[in-house]
Nucleic acid binder design. Structure first.
Lengths: 349, 349
DNA sequence: GCGTCGTGTGAGAGCGCTCTCACGATGTCG
DNA sequence: CGACATCGTGAGAGCGCTCTCACACGACGC
């Protein structure tokens, strides 16, 4: 290392300077920096030495200008879907996304549009500021995916969109997770298994309900409307749903809630009604969030590989951007049932 | 609107084309787009019409290349500080940051470096890819702020750094919040008030402990080492600390925990020891996170204006970038005590 | 020994924008 | 009525990079 090191930003070295130091042309330095194979070994070494000496970092703007790629990916996290404020789902997805993008030297541009900013967000994404978009947790009626598809920008969404959409998606096996939860309850001797379902305008809500029904059918238990209450993934919603269920069917001996938050709400209602958990009523949640361990008793819950989802989304998107491969792909990740006290033991008849 | 609309990205209109349609020069269009005052009204209108007609959006890369500004801000969220996975603090801060940046048409580039990537992150930030940096929740020994300061990149950190640092910061009034929590407990007739403190290598941990001590002093209650246990903001840590406290001082009648997670851990230990909350022992948490309402009883907690913190950080940073004003500023936001069942009522002596 | 090819390198154009500077038109003053 | 500001506009350079194309050079075949 000699005298000249990078000094902040304004003194940043340019290709030109590296070329002069290495005694080659600008074009050759560019080739080395971009890993072109058609450079002789000795020249490559000379250039690399010059790059190191000057602390050269390519100017992204200049490169983008000519390549017409921004080397950045937009990540859209939609308006507070309750989830935003109650469990650390988003940071974990972002971690997964970030890990993959940074390994590929891509920028993660985060967009958290407020309500009513859909238009603005779509404008931004379609203006060529990003090479692709990752859409997390949109509602089914959001016009964003449509606008992006129209503009021909590659995208990957999660969860599974319920309307047909020419886009790749990544999701967890919601139905399978619900199925395993209910099978677990039935396996413990429960016979009157209710569910507090999530909102039916999002795939996770729908799929978890489907999984519940299929598990009952597989266990040859009747699936009754009385045993199903739809709520909104929140604690308050879960509490209200539980009250409704108990009123209709006081003989309930197990509950599968489609989120931990709703399970927590149900728990307080069960306690208030004088029922013991898990002795009288067993309960299983979904998400395996922080809440699951703070309730008493702690919640059995379905864990999803959240970071992995983010990583997989990023991987699919980058592949689509690079190969400009329009064939949509689907990735479904497995869930895992985490057993805790809320569904322990076996009911004594 | 005529035939020519923007078609995705490649067909994007350029200044040149807008100029031709409007019948003026490229320079004039540039002036209009950038809001220069020295353009006559009729020409301005003509240009604006042409811009609308062509759906013109300035090319960020080209602009950056000449202005030598990236119009983007780096936001660094450090390695899982526990907090990342247990409460929705980060999404909320990000929301605040995002809201302000998008109002100023600035890109939010998110960095979530994994352990050991500090060097890489610093390289990125100092390479001129961003105009400024927001550092959230770093540990005191993180070398990142130093590197950034060295490179002369504007930055704002949160929480308050404990080592002297020539940077602006935003934080909540941790000491004040803790003080109000303890005053509340004392006001309810509690006399043996313990605390489960946070890690002492971060300002929030230190400041909340300080607030606790000051409140005891103000209430003319003795501050005893026996009544203080340090934990790590997690539920497990809180449980262990509570056990330690009970062993040393079985007569404890109130606990101030520096996080809701720790309060939740303490709650389970108190229950296991046969103590009733709030009748025998009252407890107050900090953060007012989702956990606070799922425990039983629900936790009284100190609420912090998280979104506001993010917004304020962004505001300070943008001001520093624009005015290249190196004078560090400090902003401390007020907290609010949210009363719930865990500290209700009054002890019957 | 001359054409032909392949291979590594350099010259140069140009990506879309901003910004300085020059210039013509208009207004102001002595 | 000429000298001089003032103001709005246009011409043109140049930001740092990539990429096409031409060229020099050695290897090869006839």
């Amino acid at each position: 290392m000699t005298t000249s090191t990078r000094d902040g930003r304004n003194g940043a070295a340019t290709l030109e300077q590296v070329a002069k130091v290495a005694g080659v042309s600008r074009a050759t330095v560019s080739r080395v920096v971009n890993g072109s194979p058609k450079v002789s070994d000795d020249i490559r070494r000379a250039v690399e030495a010059a790059v190191a000496e000057l602390g050269y970092v390519p100017n992204r703007a200049a490169r983008s200008l000519v390549t017409r790629r921004s080397d950045s990916i937009g990540v859209v996290i939609a308006e507070p879907s309750g989830r935003l404020f109650t469990d650390p789902f988003f940071p974990r997805v972002l971690r997964g996304i970030s890990a993959y993008l940074s390994s590929r030297d891509l920028q993660l541009v985060l967009l958290m549009p407020a309500a009513g900013e859909t238009h603005r967000t779509a404008d931004y994404l379609t203006a060529g500021h990003v090479d692709g978009a990752l859409l997390v947790s949109l509602h089914d009626d959001d016009p964003l995916p449509g606008r992006i598809a129209e503009a021909g920008i590659p995208m990957v969404v999660s969860p599974r969109p319920r309307r047909p959409l020419a886009a790749s998606y990544v999701d967890v096996d919601n139905a399978g997770g619900a199925h395993s939860a209910v099978a677990h309850l039935v396996g413990n001797g429960r016979r009157v298994v209710a569910t507090i379902a999530g909102p039916q305008d999002m795939a996770p809500g729908v799929d978890r309900l489907t999984g519940y029904r299929e598990a009952l059918r597989d266990a040859r238990l009747p699936s009754e409307p009385d045993l199903e209450a739809v709520a909104d993934f929140t604690q308050e919603g879960g509490a209200v749903a539980m009250e409704r269920l108990l009123k209709a069917r006081p003989d309930i001996d197990a509950v599968f809630a489609a989120s931990d938050q709703m399970a927590a709400g149900a728990l307080s209602v069960l306690a208030a009604s004088g029922r013991r958990v898990p002795e009288d009523v067993a309960i299983v949640g979904f998400d395996d969030s922080a809440v699951a361990t703070t309730t008493s008793p702690a919640l059995t819950s379905v864990r999803q590989p959240v970071e992995e989802m983010g990583e997989e989304m990023a991987r699919l998107l980058v592949a689509a951007v690079e190969r400009s491969d329009p064939a949509p792909r689907r990735v479904i990740l497995a869930t895992q049932l985490i057993r805790r006290a809320s569904s322990a033991g076996r009911r004594v008849p």
